[in-house]
Design a protein around this nucleic acid. Sequence first.
DNA 1: TCGTAGTTACGTACGGCGTACGTAGTGCGC
DNA 2: GCGCACTACGTACGCCGTACGTAACTACGA
Lengths: 237, 237
Amino acid sequence: MTGRAAEPEVIWARPERTGRGPRPAYTRADIAAAAVRIADAEGLDAVSMRRVAAELGCGTMSLYNYVPRKEDLYELMVDAAGGEHELWEPRGDWRADMLRVAHRTRALMHRHPWLPRLMSPVYGFSPNALRYLEHCLACLDPLEAPYGTKLELVAMLNAVVTSFVANELATAERARSLPWSEEQENAMRGAYLGGRIATGAYPRMAAAFAEDPGPIDLEAVFERALGRVLDGFAPRR
Amino acid sequence: MTGRAAEPEVIWARPERTGRGPRPAYTRADIAAAAVRIADAEGLDAVSMRRVAAELGCGTMSLYNYVPRKEDLYELMVDAAGGEHELWEPRGDWRADMLRVAHRTRALMHRHPWLPRLMSPVYGFSPNALRYLEHCLACLDPLEAPYGTKLELVAMLNAVVTSFVANELATAERARSLPWSEEQENAMRGAYLGGRIATGAYPRMAAAFAEDPGPIDLEAVFERALGRVLDGFAPRR
DNA sequence: TCGTAGTTACGTACGGCGTACGTAGTGCGC
DNA sequence: GCGCACTACGTACGCCGTACGTAACTACGA
């Protein structure tokens, strides 16, 4: 063995306590909670090893006893958020159950607006992610399809929900790091877009914007999107 | 006017040349190309203002004459990549045309693996994004639906493609910043997952993994996903 | 025609980041 | 009860984005 720093590992496989040495002062849950608190209050970019350590009240480098790399801290955060997902006994209607899953996921992301950004496929197998996946599959028991198809359904639903919420939250989250307000940002991007469209170079875009001046009902758009995804998996008759 | 540093602006609205002062040494395209070259070769995290300036052969701070903030550099990159999208005259079959769009988008993301990470909804209105959108709408001319629905279709297709490719590339891109190889990473995550499943706590996951030992055909999965999205928008008969 | 305002170019510097490394103290397993 | 694996954490390094100041330069208004 040359250097042991480069040994691959998943944080979930590493035991929280090994027996030897002093009792650790914090649990993984403590650390995740601290990081989540910071991200909720000040945005994901405020989550640094130093900041989390300060929140916990310990030295910066002590954190590295619990979390080998910053990426693992992110994994902890995603898993902690996933733990808030309350599951239920499926009622036998897979469509209704999956709609419920999607709505809860959206609500979760509204509560933790940094979630979409961390929703990398890599973090897909944390303990709570496994719980969540198993629950989705349970909801899909009534659907007659191979598990492969069911996994594709879950993946697609998650993709659509994540993308939708990311869109919803985009400017709001962006505004955190900008030296001007969200309203200014929106006004300015709107003005620019209007100018571009007014050139006549994008006739269909122009028509699209001219089409319906009514306010967009995000809830309806979301519901429609979910319905379409699920329709794609309904057994043909 | 107090400070003019905080005036909101889109980089695309700012003229490349104002007339006064010395002739700029580079164009926006030069800068975008340099950044894209670095990201392609060394990963997105290697793209820093210093690195891009070095690639161009100018001082770090000179870059800020062209690009007010690093985020704008990202916008430039996304737009430059979008410029590679070759468009065509729609043939009248919106389904076939949208499939083609999706396949080209996927190919583009394979060529520029950092694209999914930058595919924030905020960058949605760069010049080439507008071109792309207009082209999608042109492809959708034969589809009898309001423009709102068509935009929803494009958004959903993009979400699915982006999520799919992000999944495809996940470990490969991740391996760039890890001190161990992609194979080690995969082996280790696989071993961990196998261990979790072997506990029996996730019976459906276990069944899913036991179901089909054959190799997954990514192309087929992709095609199926696209088909399902488009089905959701096909006019009911 | 010429002064000057608005540019470009870019060196220096600041505060922050992730984290490698070394040292000191602690408590379980042999 | 010895030793080792662990915890705690200060220091330091090399990055990062970027604010600011200075010098050279050019097109415009007088």
